[in-house]
């Protein structure tokens, strides 16, 4: 399930900026451990962000995104108190959804 995401969303002049910090290993599958065995790849493949029920961003992600991925984006609209919901799915089929209110 992973740890909770940190989501910050702030609305200013009709534009909402969303910042997401995800807790995930993002293993590339190219690294070897101390015994020389390849560490299996494990990374977030897809991410969806919604403002209330409207999708504001979808993303396909590769293993070259950093460990504990950070993502920031902006969309028009959004008012204080509106809900931002972010969902990710990794290559093992694990998924997590967190939400935050626009500040």
């Amino acid at each position: 399930m992973g740890n909770p995401m940190k989501i910050r969303a702030a609305s200013k002049d009709g534009v909402t900026e969303v910042k997401v910090l995800i807790s995930h290993e993002m293993e590339t599958g190219q690294r070897k451990d101390s015994a020389g065995a390849v560490v299996p790849a494990w990374w977030i493949k897809e991410l969806t962000a919604k403002h209330n029920d409207k999708i504001v961003l979808t993303s396909e992600i590769g293993s070259s995104v950093s460990k504990n991925p950070y993502l920031a984006f902006k969309f028009k609209g959004g008012a204080k108190g509106d809900k931002i919901v972010v969902t990710w799915v990794d290559n093992k089929g694990d998924t997590r959804t967190d939400e935050a209110a626009i500040a």
């Binding site: 590339t28 993303s59 991925p69 920031a72 984006f73 969309f75 028009k76």
Partner: peptide, 20 residues
Amino acid sequence: LAASFNLPAGTEANVQTRVK
């Protein structure tokens, strides 16, 4: 390819992330 983002209407072409 590190990541691709699909932006519906209303989402600005302004995306930041961190890569390896």
